[in-house]
């Protein structure tokens, strides 16, 4: 599975599951290390997704499609 296909929420969910599982402490060592690696990757992915904010934050949905939406008084 490609990690990049995950939504932020899915990535967070998996990260949470992995963390919880490791915290239970019943995971065999090799598996724990693999899970840890995956967890750190997921964490990095979440960071990246958060950083990549949309430049055009708001859009107006019209019958013709989406248009950039600007607040009154906002610099164009």
């Amino acid at each position: 599975m490609n990690l990049n296909d995950l939504s932020f929420e899915q990535a967070m969910e998996r990260l949470e599951k992995i963390t919880a599982r490791l915290e239970e402490g019943d995971v065999p060592l090799e598996e724990a290390l693999a899970e840890y690696k995956l967890g750190m990757e997921l964490s990095a992915l979440c960071h990246e997704k958060l950083k990549k904010a949309e430049s055009e934050l708001a859009k107006l949905v019209t019958n013709q499609g989406d248009e950039p939406f600007r607040l009154d008084g906002e610099e164009s």
Binding site: L15, E16, I18, L22, V27, G39, M40, S43, C46, L50
Partner: peptide
């Protein structure tokens, strides 16, 4: 969210270290 993420990351590292 970043804080939550960081805390998860820390928990993850702690848990892995604990397993080791």
């Amino acid at each position: 969210v970043l804080e939550r993420l960081l805390s998860k990351q820390n928990r993850l590292t702690r848990a892995a270290a604990e397993t080791v």
